[in-house]
Design a protein around this nucleic acid. Sequence first.
DNA 1: TCTGGGGTCCTAGGACCC
DNA 2: TCTGGGGTCCTAGGACCC
Length: 420
Amino acid sequence: MYALVDCNSFYASCEKIFRPDLKNKPVIVLSNNDGCVIARSPEAKKMGLTMGQPWYQVRENYIGKGGVVFSSNYELYADISNRVMNLLAASCPEIDIYSIDEAFLNLQTYEKNIDLIRFAFESKEKIKKWVGIPVSIGIAPTKTLAKLANKIAKDDDRFDGVVILQDKKIIQHFLKMVEIEKIWGIGKRLAKRLNAMGIKNALQLSQTEPRLMGDNFSVVLERTIRELKGQPCLGTNNILEPKKQIMVSRSFGKSIDSKKIINEAISFHAGRAAEKLRFEDQKCSLITVFIRSNPFNRNIKQIYSSNFIELIHPTDDSRVIIKSANQILDKIYRRGYKYSKAGVLLSSFSGKLGYQMNLFEKSCDSKKSERLMNVVDFLNLTEKGKLYFGNQGYRNTWKMKRDMKSKRYTTKIDEIPIAK
DNA sequence: TCTGGGGTCCTAGGACCC
DNA sequence: TCTGGGGTCCTAGGACCC
């Protein structure tokens, strides 16, 4: 059996932990640039706000009705997430952290010795009490069914946040009520094609022939169908797989045509990407850069431009990565457009050890580079001050809007909450 | 005026090889 | 008119996820 533990309205719940005055009030959290609504407390959901809705469309009405709003504060959310995951890992060693707010537990090893219902309620109460985050728990024979169980637990108050799907009849009863698009792994496109075949709910899908569907669609769908039937196809991977690509991209706070400023943004993103790369203990040999206009604005000339550089030997040196990124920008930048977003993508990774050295490279060069990067990372990590590379810029012209960010209550000593 | 960011996996098709 | 067959590797793009 698998358990899926999922935090309810995670970002909004994080914001409420240190603000008891917000209890029972609608709270939402916005995406970068204060663009879209990406988390809603139950009260905000009841007001009809939907996921991904542009903030400017709902602002007036929402504030008018007493709603509370925050810009995203990822430092806070990451720290709270770690606390939740640590608690879960302590109660079940086979844990598969799926995203910032959810994790699968593989209960196989000791499920015969425990009472699943009790286990679920105890975990839920512990996380609420110790961390302050409400969670829902779904338990079922496969991950896909556990996802479904979790969804039912969240949507239907009668279950008090815990649903266990074990008995075949009960599973079928619930499958019948679930629309196909709500199934994990079935998106809009697939749902449309399946609907056209007359398959509307999860029970109908689970009764199709997996092999045949696999041939007509894809092995992904085949696995989903088998999982709905109760045959596990997705195992536990509790070893953290190394990343295969690293992307840093941001919308600008406003549209920009100056190459100089885009240059700063690209340098900044490239530097941040290089930092992430070193943190992953990897080197990359492919650097891609893109810039684009705002696709929602129909009144301007649209542009999407991208290109890449392949390095002869892999690197994790910020200087090399920033320089290459700017060379790409030189190639793709066109005058006369209004740009609203830029990004840097690193890929083609190789481990730090055993990489192919350049024939003309002195071995002391790479050692020098490594030592320099270590110093940069150390200083930037310890907050003793920030080190920037020459063209990363200090101007804020392209930086995003984050006007309503809460404090970093748990990770910055001077932002810690004070009881009066 | 104002519409996020960062990933994974799979597949089809091209390049290349014998 | 006729123009092999089979395999691997790589990449771009689609679909999906949170």
